[in-house]
Design a binder for these strands. Structure first.
Lengths: 310, 310
DNA sequence: GACGACTGATACTTTTTGGCTCTGAATCGA
DNA sequence: TCGATTCAGAGCCAAAAAGTATCAGTCGTC
């Protein structure tokens, strides 16, 4: 009957409080200031940090009476503890939400490319068919980030651009978006109707990050058109990207859906034989919660259809 | 000066201990059994769970005196708290590993004389005892180069030929290699067994660079034997040096260890009263990272001895 | 329908731990 | 060398956690 498990040990447990203390000291690089910031005296702070080091069997800080520095182990702890505390806070919020009567919380990661167009539709559909569901949406993410977040269960479902590498994930195809050219409105090509990719060979490009699916497909398409795009600026957020275009810094290839972003000073032009990028919804295959199943059903009747958008 | 931040609050902090307790109760669905499993009495467990519920402002468990059930919020907390605890445990492990120096990057400079013989043994030992360590090896370096590189912290540790000039460095002796004569196989001295250094007085020499330790010791030994070697070719890499010998351009003095370089057309002959060169490992004295310490420990059981390689 | 067994909560005590003040030791700058 | 600064240690107290004893429901059983 004895379920002795590593999870049940209680001695030498690193506590949340200690992580908070450590972060304060590591950020301030000063016990006194950290203590002040934590609204406590300096000696107990020193003691807690010392205890933490003993529990981990590892020196985290190098103290000279003059200054405090981080060891390599300390650097690692600092970075990871910050993430951990953020997750704990998120968890607290989510539990409170459910406690207050929400039927559940789904954490959704959304590709930068779908954050503004598709997501509002999904949120509306969810509100209609799953009242009580709270969506915790993180937008402007890249596919590799989302894959990791799904695997580590930091998000429950993601709207992303295939392909994916992980074999722990399932995919449901949503739609195919052609790439269009975003040009400054006074650009000479803006007067033309239909462009060839090759027309852009000498243009400076504003691009999504290297790791993004749109970038990968754009670059490959350019290569096939016989040139290698000269990227003058890289940016993750589409809104930023488009404002660079509007400022005349260069041209960009963005998914069709993006055209709705009618930014002052930008025109969109279609491409002949336009390359296309898929959009899909992904989840961890072994996540079989009813909540997720029901949410995925929202995509069955394509979310883009019918009268449920404003 | 007041850095008031949400991260610094300490009241109402959900603690790791509480999550452990909750998980135990949620899994057992029974306070008594959970308390037993946690090696504690039942009342304090009830209190902690109650406190947790108050901190979250949310009911987590439905208690009938007959059984305990999870609310939706409780289910959520259970699932996510398990993940969180796993992450914390992983973090503890990783911090310990880094603290013990088991992972990280070390930049190693290696004397030309040891690049091929000693280094592979060291790399193997490191792979075995310090998994996660990445070695960035630069081979075929000379002692003065390595001294400077160590001082400027462009490398962390070096395998070199003493003596060294710098007083910022520490040394650990590794082994002593006698110098032997490398001769073209058709050389008249190749027929003799044991040579005197003086026999070489009129021979053309292929030598290591002036700044190398082997060259310094060779030249000094020749001087004591009553002649000054006539150097016809200078080269840094041993493989190149030996191929000059094979080509009949001259003779050379190389450390014993080098004989394994069985190049076609070369014979090695021992010297009476052979001069010897030391091999040592050196590091910057004030570099006290755990990573380096652990790496240096690899040399304690001399890396040249057998037994510890696969 | 009453009693006993079981289960979680409550009241109270003991133990442990975290925090505070005061002080000391080491280092840096003047 | 002296003062200022900074982190650590000692001793004390308060708060929190854990323990003991007990109570109050609920369910099953006779």
């Amino acid at each position: 009957m004895e379920h002795i498990s590593a999870r049940d040990r209680r001695v030498d447990d690193v506590e949340v409080r200690q992580m908070r203390y450590f972060i304060a000291v590591a950020e301030e690089k000063h016990f006194g200031r950290a203590a002040q910031r934590l609204h406590m005296a300096q000696p107990p702070l020193s003691q807690q940090i010392k205890a933490l080091e003993e529990q981990l069997g590892t020196q985290l800080l190098v103290r000279t009476t003059r200054k405090v520095d981080l060891t390599a182990a300390g650097e690692l702890l600092l970075a990871r503890a910050r993430l951990l505390l953020a997750e704990i806070e998120k968890l607290e919020q989510d539990v409170k939400l459910v406690g207050q009567g929400a039927s559940g919380v789904l954490r959704v990661g959304v590709s930068g490319t779908a954050t503004y167009r598709l997501m509002p539709i999904i949120v509306q559909a969810a509100r209609k068919h799953m009242p009580g569901l709270r969506l915790s949406v993180q937008g402007e993410m890249l596919t590799p980030e989302m894959e990791i977040a799904l695997e580590e269960q930091r998000v429950d479902v993601a709207v992303l651009r295939p392909p994916i590498r992980s074999n722990q994930l399932s995919l449901k195809f949503l739609e195919k978006d052609e790439l269009v050219v975003a040009l400054p409105e006074d650009h000479e090509l803006a007067s033309r109707g239909l462009l060839e990719l090759a027309d852009l060979a000498d243009e400076p490009f504003i691009a999504y990050p290297l790791s993004s699916a749109v970038n990968a497909i754009s670059t490959e398409a350019c290569r096939q058109a016989g040139f290698s795009p000269r990227i003058v600026q890289e940016t993750q957020e589409t809104s930023t990207l488009l404002s660079f275009v509007a400022a005349g810094m260069g041209v960009a290839l963005v998914p069709t859906a993006r055209r709705m972003f009618a930014l002052q000073g930008i025109v969109f032009r279609q491409l002949r034989n336009a390359p296309a990028v898929d959009l899909a919804v992904a989840w961890k295959t072994d996540n079989e919660t009813a909540l997720l199943k029901k949410f995925l059903d929202l995509f069955e009747t394509p979310a883009t259809t019918e009268g449920n958008q404003a």
